[in-house]
């Protein structure tokens, strides 16, 4: 094992891993983090903590990770390239490791124009693939980007995101290959609604042997309503929501659509689990964390292995 990461340990044991997500609050209340944490306790193997997602200012990802760590979680610290240059990034990586964080998810970050500070300057000194390589260089070579040697190397399990549905499709598997080459240990995908298209992508991933070099966790997000499904299809770039899914939700009375959404999500997890190379599932129940336990249980993934 490269690190003390819980998900790395479970993946090595051959377990099908379950992760979820916890968005930090828009304020300094630590209790808000604990409250969300409590909904996920003993439900999942690792919790992603988002880094100012959609460019809306929130409590820092690292601080929230530490609060969750104190609760017994093995947080997956999300770090975006939007807000930090390579000096801050390397420094935060060392700090996170010192605080006992074992997992990092390397992301570009949403553009600031989507958030509450659209007039901000972005940084993008390095990109997500270069970030993966930076963490790997610190961890495995014990060297800073500037070439100097570290005293005490950060032992982080390196993750990244990949969107199998974004354009241009033809380079999506190739791009995952770049992430693996850069040093990525695991991947969490964008939420999958089109299992067929995802399977096709996984086929390309297997052809390149990438599934053997990094663990692929398939991303899912339960739909709350037909309206939400339509909204995501129309407004979220790189989101592939098949019409059949929207129709299925719309065919159910409004008050039962959320339950139908959960049912669809569970079915989807069961399908994804059967795809060769899928090593786990990442459940992103945005502001719906209370449903994660139900989904995990219904998908037959409960209780989690020790």
């Amino acid at each position: 094992m490269k690190t003390k990461s819980n998900i790395e340990r479970l993946l090595e044991k051959g377990e099908f891993v379950v992760t979820s997500e916890c968005g930090p609050p828009r304020g300094s209340d630590a209790e808000a983090v604990r409250k969300k944490g409590n909904l996920l306790k003993e439900v999942v193997d690792g919790v992603n903590v988002t880094d100012n997602q959609t460019s809306v200012v929130r409590m820092s990802s690292l601080a929230s990770c530490v609060i969750l760590k104190e609760m017994g979680f093995d947080p997956i610290w999300q770090l975006v390239c939007r807000d930090r240059n390579r000096i801050a990034i390397q420094s935060d990586i060392l700090g996170a490791a010192a605080l006992g964080i074992n997992n990092i998810l390397c992301l570009s970050g949403d553009h600031q124009s989507f958030g509450d500070n659209p007039k901000a300057k972005n940084v993008y000194d390095i990109d997500s693939i270069q970030l993966i390589h930076t963490v790997k260089t610190l961890r495995d070579e014990g060297k800073f980007l500037g070439g100097d040697e570290l005293k005490g190397t950060p032992s982080l399990f390196i993750g990244a995101a990949e969107n199998p549905f974004a354009d241009p499709y033809e380079i999506r598997a190739m791009r995952l290959g770049k992430k693996v080459k850069a040093g990525c240990d695991f991947i969490q995908t964008q939420c999958i609604y089109n299992v067929e298209k995802f399977s096709k992508w996984m086929g390309e991933v297997r052809e390149r042997g990438l599934h053997k070099q990094c663990a692929i966790l398939a991303g899912v997000t339960p739909l709350k309503s037909a309206g939400m499904a339509k909204y995501m299809k129309k407004n979220v770039p790189g989101m592939d929501v098949p019409d059949s899914l929207i129709e299925r939700l719309a065919a159910v009375p409004k008050e039962n659509q959320a339950q139908e959404g959960i049912k669809i999500c569970v079915e989807m997890i069961r399908q994804l689990k059967e795809i060769e190379g899928v090593r786990g599932v990442h459940i992103m129940a945005i502001e719906w964390e209370e449903k994660v336990a139900e989904i995990v249980k219904a998908a037959g993934l409960s209780p989690r292995p020790a």
């Binding site: 570009s108 949403d110 553009h111 993008y124 990109d127 997500s128 693939i129 270069q130 995101a161 990949e162 969107n163 974004a166 354009d167 241009p168 791009r175 770049k178 964008q190 770039p237 790189g238």
Partner: peptide, 10 residues
Amino acid sequence: LFNGPCGGSS
């Protein structure tokens, strides 16, 4: 991005 595209290419 030097190794793009990001997930927002549509």
